[in-house]
């Protein structure tokens, strides 16, 4: 009873992890070196930034929004990090705080434009994204800068010599979200996404919930930008290009409905891992990396079809369009 219940409520998440497990198995079997710590470290470094963005995007999508500026926020954070996250430990700490605060402010702006300005999220965040990209170009017109090598090593190598740090980063993202989810703010984000009218009728603060969702999305985007900085030791204003759509793809593969309310951060991380593992898999099978979008698209389509089985059960055709 209990286990079947878990499958019922977490089916999409389990599905995403199942797909990931299969891909990972194939990946390790075709990898010339097989399962080894170094392979896992390289692989998880490639996954972490997208996983962080996927977590941020999930929170926004849970509130029935969407953040098309998540890539630009990440790029802006990355560029700011390339100026500030270096030097003495206290300077580095200050830099990290500023980078995260930047993400929060960008998200806050998105939230305010959507809630107060009553603009559609898709337009508001698209425009905001262009602004954030412009700011990133101002902060760092051409790629470069400097990021603390010590911190970079700590974040991109192995912790205690046994676990890739990037894996801990992804676990940390989940650990950050769960208390929020259990806080009334997180609860109201889900309630608003599930049924805004019901949330309003229940006396919840709808505006605050939405703004909080975007702000949290911005924070995770900034963490993603920071991680990219650890990987490249520099800032690059064009880094976010592919991340916005990939984060949405990860969310969808992870089983979160773009219609809001239902979904899980853990699933989205699986979605991000699936996308990145496809990349690595294609690489080692010997296909050109340029073929990657084709395979990612196929997986995305399968994931979406899985979600659409709901429509087959609908008895009133008109409800399909609602």
């Amino acid at each position: 009873m209990r286990s079947s219940g878990i499958f019922k409520t977490q089916g999409r998440t389990l599905f995403a992890w199942g797909v990931f497990a299969i891909l990972m198995g194939v990946f390790l079997s075709v990898h010339p070196r097989g399962a080894s710590l170094g392979v896992f470290t390289t692989w998880s470094n490639q996954c972490a930034a997208l996983a962080l963005l996927a977590v941020g995007q999930t929170i926004v999508v849970l509130s029935k929004g969407i953040d098309l500026s998540i890539g630009p926020i990440m790029a802006l954070a990355n560029c700011i990090a390339s100026h500030l996250v270096n030097g003495s430990p206290s300077e580095i700490a200050f830099g990290v705080v500023i980078v995260i605060a930047t993400g929060a402010i960008c998200g806050l702006i998105n939230g305010l434009v959507v809630v107060v300005g009553k603009l559609q999220a898709i337009i508001a965040t698209l425009a905001a994204g262009a602004i954030f990209t412009g700011l990133a170009l101002l902060v760092r017109p051409i790629p470069g800068g400097d990021i603390s090598v010590g911190l970079s090593d700590a974040m991109t190598m192995e912790a205690f010599g046994v676990v890739p740090s990037a894996v801990l980063v992804m676990l940390g993202a989940v650990a950050l979200w769960y208390p929020i989810r259990r806080h009334p703010i997180g609860r109201s984000i889900i309630a608003v996404g599930s049924s805004e009218a019901a949330a309003e009728a229940s006396g919840l603060n709808v505006a605050r919930a939405k703004i909080a969702a975007y702000a949290l999305g911005g924070v995770f985007a900034a963490l993603g930008g920071l991680f990219i900085g650890f990987q490249t030791l520099s800032g690059d204003p064009s880094i976010g290009l592919t991340y916005t759509l990939n984060s949405i793809a990860a969310v969808v593969i992870g089983g979160t409905m773009l219609t809001g309310g239902a979904g899980s951060v853990v699933g989205s991380i699986a979605g991000a891992l699936v996308l990145r593992t496809i990349g690595s898999l294609i690489f080692f099978i010997g296909l050109q990396p340029l073929a990657q979008p084709l395979f990612e698209g196929t997986v995305l389509l399968i994931a979406v079809s899985f979600g659409a089985t709901r429509l087959l059960k609908i008895k009133n055709r008109m409800e399909v369009f609602q």
Binding site: H31, T42, Q231, T232, T242, G279, S280, F283, F284
Partner: peptide, 29 residues
């Protein structure tokens, strides 16, 4: 995509290639 290029070089390193020649998309990264 510079991240994809870094991933490719990393993959070759992990796969035990002896040498990698590359044209960097972003020479600072």
């Amino acid at each position: 995509d510079v991240a994809a290029q870094i991933a490719a070089v990393d993959n070759f390193i992990q796969a035990g290639y002896d040498a990698i020649a590359f044209i960097a998309v972003n020479p600072t990264a």
